[in-house]
Simulated assay, not measured.
Amino acid sequence: MSDKPVALSWKEQLDLFKSRGMIVHKGDIDKLKNISYYRLKEFARPLSTVKKYQNHTEISYDGIEFKEVLSRYYQDKNLRI
C-alpha cells in the first residue's frame, strides 16, 4: 500500500481554511474551484499567524475573511496585467 496523502475535495479544502479560523461563506467554494487552494493559501500567508512547534507548524487565519484573501489575489492579478 502507498502512504501518499489523498487529495482533498473542494469542500474539504474550504473546511481546512475554516478550521484554521478563516471566515468563509457558502458561495466561496466556487471561487476556490476556479483559483485553487494552494494559490489562495499563498495570498493568505501574510495575513496569517504561524507558530512552529518541535514537529509541526500551526497556521492560524483567525478573523481573516475569505473575501480579503480574494481581494489580495485579484489586486496582484490586475497589477500583473
Rank of each mutant, 00 (worst) to 15 (best):
T49M: 10
K18D: 15
L32P: 13
I64T: 05
R80I: 10
L79K: 09
E68F: 00
L14N: 07
H25P: 00
L16V: 04
L40H: 04
K33F: 04
T57Q: 12
S36R: 14
D76M: 11
I59S: 01
K26R: 13
L8C: 14
L40R: 05
S19D: 15
I29W: 03
Y37E: 00
S36N: 15
L32V: 08
L47S: 05
Y74T: 09
G21Q: 10
A7D: 09
V24Q: 03
I64Q: 07
I59K: 02
D15Q: 13
K41R: 05
S36G: 05
L8R: 15
Y61T: 02
K31R: 03
L16F: 02
F17Q: 02
A7H: 03
N78K: 14
L16H: 09
L79W: 06
I81V: 11
H56N: 03
L16C: 05
H25W: 07
I59R: 01
L47H: 05
D76Y: 15
S19W: 10
E65H: 08
A44F: 01
L8T: 13
M1A: 14
P46Q: 13
D3H: 05
L79Q: 03
E65M: 12
L40E: 01
T49S: 11
E42T: 13
V69G: 02
R45S: 13
Y37K: 07
V6S: 10
P46T: 13
N34K: 12
E42Y: 07
N34F: 01
Y37S: 02
F66G: 00
S48E: 14
K26V: 11
Y53F: 11
S2P: 12
F43I: 12
P46D: 12
E65I: 00
S36A: 10
L8Y: 15
H25S: 08
I64S: 05
E68V: 00
M22I: 15
K26M: 09
K52G: 00
E42N: 10
R39E: 12
K51E: 06
Y53Q: 10
D15H: 05
T49R: 11
Y53V: 02
V6D: 11
K18Q: 15
I64Y: 06
L8D: 10
E12L: 07
V69W: 06
V50I: 14
L16Y: 01
L70I: 09
E42R: 15
H25Q: 13
Q54Y: 06
S36M: 05
F43S: 08
L70Q: 04
V24A: 08
Y53W: 06
E65N: 10
K33N: 12
I81P: 08
S36E: 12
S19T: 10
R80D: 07
M22L: 15
E58G: 02
E65A: 14
I29F: 03
Q54K: 13
E58T: 08
K52M: 04
L40T: 03
I23R: 12
K31D: 11
G21F: 03
N34P: 02
Y37H: 08
Y37V: 00
M22T: 11
H25G: 02
L16E: 11
R72P: 00
S19K: 14
F43M: 13
D30H: 13
V6K: 11
E65S: 12
D15E: 15
K51D: 02
H25K: 07
M22V: 15
I35L: 04
K31H: 08
K18T: 15
